[in-house]
């Protein structure tokens, strides 16, 4: 197991190098002279020349790439063009909000998804089953930002159950709508996965034996079936945790949530390249790490998987 972890970690290195190269290409090969844009309205030729020099824009491309590479691996991506804030600080100051949102979204997704998945499986072909599976299909197909808007309209404006958007002063109630919106899609996927793997397990012999032994329905479902149905579900949960982190770009915009997603969209609007680069690297890194964790946990949950 230990060797497997090390091997996977080492394997991630070339991928991350590739990510750095792609980020460089994405943010360098764009129309417009960043120095001129940075210099702004008062930019005289001397200022622009100075900025070009400071940013190393006059160096040949491969030198620029190498410099960028060095700054990326040393976590030294400079300061925001827009407000001079250190890139690490800018991202890390927003990350807790995003993490909180993503975590809450995941909790909702697991609770909602597994509950309805189990009920559907146990009461297969019942009204409940059809309803929840239909809802799951809608949850996968409807745009999350649109659902978020409808939620604000219903729960804040019409019903007034939720006091508003943003984070309040960290009160829990502000977390409900954005987390729910974010959680719908993974909840739907988890529900479908739980249902199908539960069905598969329920049909197996030992569960039938359990029924036959006269064990209560609850015990059978929870103790035996669920335990075995968990493996694919766990995988999906892990995988969705990673993709949630990119879903926040939209949800944070809709709910004015002060996280990394909103920072990214703002940086795009103002061409704040240090922030854009930092964010993409940061989120890609997070992505790689969570994929790694998913694989590892998959290995943990399923003893049949070999580590070599």
């Amino acid at each position: 197991m230990g060797r497997y972890v090390v091997r996977r970690l080492v394997g991630a290195i070339p991928v991350f190098i590739g990510v750095i190269v792609v980020v460089f290409i994405l943010t360098t090969m764009v129309p417009g002279d960043p120095a001129r844009i940075m210099a702004g309205q008062a930019g005289n030729p001397e200022t622009i020349a100075r900025i070009r020099k400071e940013m190393g824009l006059d160096d040949p491309l491969h030198i620029q790439m190498w410099n960028f590479f060095k700054s990326a691996v040393t976590f030294n991506l400079g300061r925001s063009y827009r407000n001079n804030m250190d890139v690490n600080e800018a991202i890390l100051s927003r990350f807790p909000a995003t993490f909180k949102l993503a975590l809450a979204g995941m909790v909702i997704a697991i609770v909602l998804g597994m509950t309805s998945g189990i009920i559907s499986a146990v009461k297969q072909y019942s009204v409940l089953d059809y309803t929840s599976m239909l809802l799951a299909l809608v949850g996968i197909s409807a745009p999350s930002f649109w659902i978020g808007l409808l939620f604000i309209y219903f729960f804040c404006v019409i019903l007034r159950w939720i006091p508003g958007t943003g984070t309040g002063n960290g009160e829990f109630v502000y977390l409900i709508l954005p987390a729910l919106t974010l959680g719908i899609r993974p909840a739907a996927l988890i529900a479908r996965m739980t249902r199908s793997s539960m069905l598969e397990v329920i049909r197996q012999d030992y569960i039938r034996t359990a029924w036959a032994k006269g064990l209560g329905a609850k015990t059978v479902v929870l103790k035996h079936a669920l335990k075995n149905a968990m493996i694919p579900v766990v995988t999906i949960v892990g995988v969705q945790m990673a993709s949630l982190l990119s879903g926040v770009v939209l949800i944070e915009q809709v709910f004015q949530w002060p996280g990394v997603g909103r920072l990214f969209v703002e940086a795009l609007t103002y061409r704040d390249f240090p922030i854009i680069r930092g964010e993409v690297l940061f989120l890609a890194g997070l992505f790689i790490i969570s994929n790694l964790l998913v694989d590892l946990s998959y290995a943990l949950f399923d003893p049949r998987i070999r580590y070599d």
């Binding site: 604000i152 804040c156 404006v157 508003g164 958007t165 004015q256 002060p258 909103r262």
Partner: peptide, 18 residues
């Protein structure tokens, strides 16, 4: 000052009294 980058939300928040 709340930072609200969206007039729709700003107005909604106003009406909600925030």
């Amino acid at each position: 000052y709340r930072i609200i980058v969206d007039y729709t939300i700003e107005y909604t928040e106003y009406k909600l009294g925030n």
